[in-house]
Structure formats: structure tokens, C-alpha cells
């Protein structure tokens, strides 16, 4: 069947190119993290006392740390921890936030009022400080870290999805659907959520980048994953003690964090451009 597609405008083509590049690198880094063991040249925990604080060389590409551990391998394994936490937290936060936000927007009334006031309350605290306080209260460790980060940041998703639902709820096609005999559940799952989700993709990818930064920040403060588990922020925190003798301990993990945050922000940014309804082809 012939589809009537509008010709692609230059700005749209650029957005597609950015999207493809960002997606390629995102997938690449996720693969590195997932298959760290096949890419790593050494065991990330193996110490080599003959090569402590060694500069980058053909043997140790990114150099070694104060215990002679290979930084390249640690970065690969560290990705496993950092990206895993970022994805998990975003997943939890998005699911919970979207569910609560859509329910509040769709049902309205008292339920909506109570939920949104609760969100306001949580949002009144500065996010990162709240997370730090929470982690120090319930203790460090990856599960606690995930819990603390999730508890403090689902409100953003709840707010956005609620307002998206509100803007769709009064559309003529919802009235049309009711006339066609659709039940509340059907309206929610067939008519509202499919029209809300694409707009939230932007926020989801942006959130992954943000979470990577939060994790690194927390690890830097010693509130992240416990040693010796390799983790980017924690590596940064260790590196700062040897800033002058072994700058590579700081530079490489820092670069990796930077690149990953940029990639996920670029991804969300290009998705936003692609979904701009004025230029949309779907």
C-alpha cells in the first residue's frame, strides 16, 4: 500500500542523523557493560603490585590505579554497575510515576488532589540532598542506593504524565470513544496511554543521563557502591587522591561519565526534535 509521506525537511534529517549516532553509541556502551568480561583485558579486582599507578601503555591502555588494577577493565565493569543502576532507577521511577500520574489525571477529584499535594511536598526538598540524607539514613549499598534515588525522583514523571493525560482527556476522540461504548479501562489503555507514552520517551532518556550523574556524585561522596566493586563515580573518588601522580585515574572515568551523559541527553534531545508534531511524519 502506498503511504503518503511528506518529504523530509533538512532539520528533520539532521535530527535523524543525531538520533542514529546517539543510539549507536548508547547501544555500544550498554554492550561494553553487558559483555564486560569478554572485552576486559584483566580481572578488574586483580592487583599488580609491580605496576602500581602505571601510566597508560600498550599493556595497560588507561594505566593502573594505586593497587595496580587495570583502569580500562575497571571502567568496563564499572559501566555494569553505573548503567545498571541508572536504567533500573529510571525504569522504576518511570513506571511508578507514569502509573500514579495517569491515574491522578484520569480519575481527577480528591484522589488527584491528595496525590499531587504529596508530590508537591516531595518536590519541595532539593532532590540530591534528599537522596544523600536518605542514603545516610538507610545505609549504603546498591539496593539502598536504588531505593533512595527512586523514592526521591518519581514525582517528576507523575507530574508530567498527569498534565499530558489532562491535555488528552478532554479531546473529542475520548468523547467519541465513550460513545462507541469503550469502558474506562479501555479508554485509559487504548486511547490515553498510547498517546502519552511517546511524549514521555524524551524524559525517560534524559532521566538516564541525570541518574548517571547522581550515582557518580553519590559515589564520590562515599555514599555509592561499596568498594571494591568498580563503579565510575567511586573510581573518580579514588583518583582524586592521586591527582598529581596519576591523573589518568581521574581523567578516564571522568571522560566516560561525561560521554555517557552527553549521549543520553543527545538521544532524548533528538527524540524531542523527531516528535515535534509540526514536522512529524507519523
Amino acid at each position: 500500500m502506498k503511504k503518503s509521506r511528506k518529504p523530509m525537511t533538512p532539520s528533520r534529517r539532521r535530527a535523524w542523523i543525531r538520533f542514529t549516532i546517539a543510539l549507536f553509541f548508547a547501544v555500544l556502551f550498554v554492550c561494553f557493560a553487558l559483555f564486560a568480561s569478554s572485552f576486559a583485558r584483566y580481572d578488574p579486582l586483580k592487583t599488580d603490585y609491580d605496576n602500581m599507578l602505571a601510566a597508560p601503555s600498550s599493556r595497560y591502555w588507561f594505566g593502573t590505579d594505586q593497587l595496580g588494577r587495570d583502569i580500562f577493565s575497571r571502567i568496563l565493569y564499572g559501566g555494569k554497575t553505573s548503567l545498571l543502576i541508572a536504567f533500573l532507577v529510571t525504569g522504576i521511577v518511570a513506571t511508578v510515576g507514569i502509573f500514579i500520574g495517569t491515574a491522578a489525571g484520569f480519575l481527577g477529584g480528591v484522589f488527584d488532589g491528595i496525590l499531587m499535594r504529596f508530590c508537591d511536598m516531595l518536590m519541595a526538598f532539593p532532590g540530591s540532598i534528599f537522596t544523600i540524607a536518605m542514603v545516610s539514613f538507610i545505609g549504603t549499598g546498591i539496593p539502598n542506593l536504588i531505593l533512595a534515588m527512586s523514592l526521591t525522583s518519581w514525582t517528576g514523571f507523575a507530574r508530567i504524565s498527569r498534565s499530558l493525560v489532562l491535555s488528552i482527556k478532554n479531546n473529542v476522540y475520548i468523547e467519541q470513544a465513550r460513545m462507541g461504548g469503550a469502558s474506562d479501562w479501555k479508554i485509559l489503555f487504548v486511547y490515553i496511554i498510547p498517546n502519552v507514552l511517546p511524549s514521555l520517551l524524551v524524559n525517560i532518556f534524559q532521566s538516564i543521563g541525570g541518574k548517571l550523574l547522581t550515582i557518580s556524585g553519590l559515589s564520590l561522596l562515599g555514599l555509592g557502591s561499596p568498594p571494591p566493586t568498580p563503579e565510575w563515580g567511586f573510581m573518580l573518588s579514588e583518583g582524586k587522591n592521586f591527582m598529581y601522580q596519576a591523573p589518568w585515574m581521574l581523567v578516564f572515568p571522568g571522560l566516560v561519565i561525561l560521554i555517557n551523559v552527553v549521549i543520553f541527553n543527545l538521544l532524548s534531545d533528538s527524540i524531542q526534535d523527531l516528535m515535534n508534531p509540526k514536522e512529524s511524519t507519523w
Partner: peptide, 26 residues
């Protein structure tokens, strides 16, 4: 009911066939 603005009475992501089927199924 048939509404004035044709496009806004259709869910953007629902195909025409399904749109017509909906009342009969429901």
C-alpha cells in the same frame, strides 16, 4: 455523533479499521 473537526475526533495512533470496529466490539 459526528463532530466538526475531523482530525481531532480520531486518536492519532489508531488505524481507521480499528476505529470503525470499536463500537461493534464494545
Amino acid at each position: 455523533m459526528v463532530f466538526q473537526d475531523p482530525l481531532s475526533s480520531f486518536s492519532p495512533r489508531m488505524k481507521i479499521g480499528k476505529y470503525i470496529c470499536e463500537p461493534r466490539i464494545n
